[in-house]
């Protein structure tokens, strides 16, 4: 098992290198560069640039080199110095921009992930065990609705309802006081309260998807011969549900872990903008719009790395769950 994990970790290196190459290539594809968009936005405000100014800016930012040279320099910086480049928008290093929001982003993602599984697994199991009951129909209805509703729409609706009900506007994770006075323990309850809406909104679509998967898988498992064998042996229904059905049913759910990690991370951009969340998604969007290429590249690459690591984690979890996978790895 350790050998397998080691092998997988080694494979990560070429995978990430290739991903970084593709990312960089795609990001520089649109015509123009940061200077073009910078000049355009300042010209709109009445600034006048001469050709010489523009050339100087280009020279300064190293934008005159061909893209593969830029890529090479970028990678060299990352590998040798851990330097992810310079963010033109923020005027400081990319890493410091990312670090501003990294922990919050990961925290939000992680909590949402836990929320999704904690809510959807029991509901999925309930629906399978009570197929075609009123409860099953209600949850199925909510499940389809949740999957079909765009998150940002849900965000707007929920914020509207909360405003109607409480008269409070919950925008963002931090209140004005928090930002002014800095975080302290007295704000924790309010902070947690402010987390609820994003948690609910961003978590819903994933939750509903998992409910459907778990339900279908559990129903499938219940018709298996070994479920019948277990019942004929005298096992209780709880043993059958949790020991026999659930463990097999988890297989595709765990495989989907990597995907849902990514969905939360990048898919929540629009909702994050609507809810004014201080997480990575909106920064990425702004960086892409202004062709702040090192920042955009680094954020996309972080996501890619997260997905790759998520996949590794889900593979390890699968091997732990299913002896057949465990053994085929050994051989």
């Amino acid at each position: 098992m350790l050998k397998y994990i080691g092998k997988r970790l080694l494979l990560l290196i070429p995978t990430i290198l290739i991903i970084s190459f593709v990312i960089f290539f795609v990001i520089q594809l649109p015509p123009g560069d940061y200077v073009t968009s910078y000049v355009a936005s300042l010209s709109a405000q009445g600034e006048v640039f001469t050709e010489a100014d523009i050339a100087y800016l280009r020279e300064q930012y190293g934008l005159n080199d061909p893209w593969y040279v830029q890529y090479f320099n970028w990678m060299k910086g990352i590998i040798t110095k851990g330097d992810f480049g310079y963010s033109f928008n923020y005027g400081r290093s990319v890493w410091s921009v990312i670090m501003d929001r990294l922990f919050l982003t990961m925290g939000v993602s992680f909590v949402i992930l836990i929320f999704q599984y904690a809510v959807s697994l029991p509901i999925g199991i309930y629906c399978a065990n009570h197929q075609y009951s009123a409860g099953d129909y209600i949850w199925s209805f909510i499940g389809f609705l949740g999957t079909a509703t765009p998150n940002f729409l849900l965000a707007i609706l929920v914020m509207f309802w909360v405003y109607k009900a409480t008269g409070q506007v919950y925008l963002g994770l931090f209140s004005k006081e928090m930002l002014q006075n800095g975080m302290s323990w007295q704000y924790v309850p309010e902070f947690l309260g402010r987390c609820l809406i994003p948690l609910f909104v961003i978590g819903t679509s994933g939750t509903c998807g998992i409910i459907r998967t778990v339900r279908a898988q559990m129903l499938d498992e219940q018709t298996r011969q070994y479920t019948l064998t277990a019942r004929a042996k005298g096992c209780s229904e709880a043993t059958i549900t949790y020991k026999y059905c659930l463990r097999s049913a988890l297989n595709p759910v765990v495989s989907g872990l990597a995907g849902s990690l990514n969905t939360i991370f990048s898919g929540s951009t629009v909702s994050a903008i609507v809810m004014n969340l201080q997480i990575q998604g909106p920064v990425l969007l702004a960086a892409l719009k202004s062709q702040d290429m090192y920042l955009a590249g680094t954020i996309v690459m972080t996501q890619a790395v997260l997905v790759v690591i998520g996949m590794l984690l889900s593979d390890i979890a699968l091997a732990w769950l299913d002896p057949r996978i465990r053994f085929s790895e050994r051989g």
């Binding site: 011969q225 070994y226 019948l228 064998t229 042996k233 005298g234 096992c235 026999y244 097999s248």
Partner: peptide, 23 residues
């Protein structure tokens, strides 16, 4: 359940699928 498996037990047609692959 006190009868199943203890006083009356059953063997099935297809042994290949009668055991859970997980245990």
């Amino acid at each position: 359940r006190s009868v199943r498996g203890k006083q009356i037990s059953m063997i099935f047609q297809e042994p290949m699928v009668a055991f859970s692959p997980m245990y």
